[in-house]
Design a protein around this nucleic acid. Structure first.
Lengths: 190, 190
DNA sequence: CCTCATTTAGTAGTTGGTACTAAAATCAGT
DNA sequence: ACTGATTTTAGTACCAACTACTAAATGAGG
């Protein structure tokens, strides 16, 4: 239980505060068994803002994140659309979408992109997926830009058949055939 | 531009602070053209905490949300598992999972639950979805508790066939047949 | 005009700091 | 063991944004 050296302590301090930004100087002084002044000097040298600033930052940052997450409601960004005919979307694979171990995208995000695109191309108050046959052909990896294309093959009064193909760098990674149910008013299915 | 009456002012104060929790008493006093003391009395009567408390609340709330979202990495909570044989998971439909308009769950979350469950039941370093046939039988609504059951039908050296059924209150809402690819080391697919 | 509610003023004390000065302790090298 | 630099403490004054309290001023209505 020897005390850390300055440099050592500062490194740990950084990660500690990163993990838990809600730590006061007093608590930190307690943790490292040094005086409050030492902690303050450390923060000064590492230009770590004071507790209140840190909390404020968390509060404002996370408000932004929530906004961008509700944007993720429709997964992927629609880049071209020809209503009831075809549509294109772009989805960039980020940290949250992959298996930690190998950075391969989880299948359901690719499905979600395709599914969202089907909902979008059928622009109705109610559009639900009825069934789908899908195939994962190749892996998508972290930071890949996935371009998904949906083409409406058939449409009748309340159903549409849509095929979706997703590609990374022009290579097919996913394809699916979706049957969508839709209506113009708030009908019930099943 | 007459001054508000007490009650009136307090109502507006409430909504104002709700909209923007980062307002100091000083700014609020300025807005309502009253003294700081009046604002403090108002907050006391309405039991609105002080600025710093409010900011802290925002920060902690949002930290919780982020945590529950990275937990969403595996969508749904696994409640029972018999490796390579079958597994059960629970997924509660929340605000972020439904269409705003009608509070019906987006299909890809139900798919994600099923897909995650398939990955979980095949407990291998690499387990990827190869293909799936799925059917959405009935809608799931906001706050529904969806129980998903995966049963492994066949397994060979590197593939498994799994059927999944999801129910709400015992009624079938989704079913799917998944083919999963897996390996014990970091092999490549395709 | 009197009275009760409302508003404002002012003081002391709190938390979690900054900014600064200065003393004490520790360490490194000779 | 001594010196000089580095590091750590100690201590003071000050700040924001309050709470908690007392007391005075200002309304508004009967």
């Amino acid at each position: 239980m020897t005390k850390y050296k300055k440099h050592e302590r500062q490194e740990i301090l950084l990660t500690r505060i990163n993990e838990d930004p809600f730590l006061t100087d007093e608590k930190l002084a307690d943790i490292f068994k040094v005086s409050i002044q030492t902690i303050r000097l450390d923060r000064l040298e590492l230009s770590i803002p004071e507790l209140r600033e840190r909390i404020k930052n968390v509060a404002t940052e996370e408000v932004d994140k929530i906004k961008s997450l509700s944007l993720q409601e429709v997964i992927g960004e629609i880049i071209d659309i020809d209503l009831n005919a075809q549509a294109l979307s772009l989805f960039i694979i980020e940290e949250g979408h992959v298996f930690e171990r190998n950075e391969i995208a989880r299948g359901h995000f690719l499905f979600a992109q395709a599914n969202s695109l089907c909902v979008a191309v059928i622009n109705r108050p109610l559009a639900l997926t009825k069934s789908a046959e899908i195939e994962f052909i190749r892996q998508a990896k972290l930071h890949d830009k996935v371009i998904s294309k949906a083409v409406v093959n058939e449409m009748d009064n309340n159903k549409a058949a849509i095929t979706v193909e997703s590609k990374v760098d022009g290579r097919l990674i996913f394809k699916g055939r979706f049957v969508m149910y839709y209506s113009n008013e708030g009908d019930e299915i099943g």
